[in-house]
């Protein structure tokens, strides 16, 4: 494999993927399904962060909100409006699920940006599970609400009859690619951002090895880390937003399958 050889010529060590290793939280050993791992730790950090924002933040129940309460209200309002606008009035029934999903992805992304943190949404297992859950739920909702009419989603009536079968094949493929793209998009964004930060951070050590070249490279790489970090904060929010909005779009397709 390739990683061992990286940077050995210059003495720099790049381990951009180390941050994604799942380790047991206590001691060494194998990671069984029940083992409390760093995944467990950060999952519950997400739960606590959500608790802090949505429950502790609103404990005043004030008519004139405090700062934390207005943040909680803003996120509530944003997701509520999103579900209402995209999935329609009958989609508001699923608002708690979508809110849960949004808070989870948002805090997973944000907490993953803390130094030494573990980003749970950078794992295909986590995002794939979420995306599959969304996909299956939405498909079940579609069939329960519309019965066989749900298949109208694939049979584009506005198109000429001759090309409808072709469109149907494309629609079916794009439908089944949804969970894949949903999960890969989120995990890929997280992996890429964190790995790039790690690579730039790896260059920052050059000044210890080669002071002449390092005096030039290290400040640039530190600036790059800062810039990437700021960009990643934006990406963390946008990816949570996109994940949620796509869930809403899929929900809309399930509730109103006719184009």
């Amino acid at each position: 494999m390739a990683t061992e050889a990286h940077g050995e010529a210059t003495g720099l060590s790049f381990h951009p993927m180390d941050q994604f290793i799942v380790r047991p939280l206590f001691g060494d050993g194998d990671v069984h399904w029940y083992t409390p791992s760093n995944v467990t730790l950060w999952l519950f950090a997400i739960v606590l962060a959500t608790l802090a924002l949505l429950v502790l933040g609103t404990r005043g129940r004030a008519i004139v909100p405090s700062r934390s309460q207005s943040m909680a209200e803003m996120s509530y309002g944003m997701i509520h409006k999103m579900v209402g606008d995209i999935a329609g009035k009958d989609g508001l029934k699923y608002f708690p699920y979508i809110m849960t999903l949004f808070m989870f992805v948002l805090f997973a992304n944000f907490l993953g940006l803390l130094p030494m943190a573990f980003t749970v949404t950078s794992h295909i297992a986590v995002t794939g599970f979420l995306a599959l859950a969304v996909f299956l739920t939405v498909t079940v909702i579609g069939f329960v609400k519309n019965g066989a009419h749900f298949l109208d989603l694939f049979w584009v009536r506005s198109a000429p009859l001759a090309i409808r079968p072709v469109l149907a094949v494309i629609e079916v493929i794009s439908y089944f690619v949804r969970p894949l793209s949903l999960s890969i998009r989120l995990a890929g964004n997280m992996i890429a951002g964190h790995a790039v930060i790690k690579v730039f951070a790896g260059f920052a050590a050059l000044i210890l090895i080669n002071p002449g070249l390092g005096a030039l490279v290290t400040p640039v790489s530190i600036l790059a880390v800062v810039g990437m970090y700021a960009f990643e904060i934006l990406v963390a929010f946008i990816q949570a937003y996109v994940f949620t909005i796509l869930t809403c779009v899929y929900l809309k397709d399930a509730l109103h399958p006719s184009h």
């Binding site: 793209s181 998009r185 996109v242 909005i245």
Partner: peptide, 20 residues
């Protein structure tokens, strides 16, 4: 803006595929 983000997400997903 919602449509913008959806469009960006779709365009970006393909790049993420190549990254993967």
């Amino acid at each position: 803006t919602a449509t913008l983000f959806i469009g960006m997400a779709f365009a970006e997903a393909l790049g993420i595929f190549s990254f993967l």
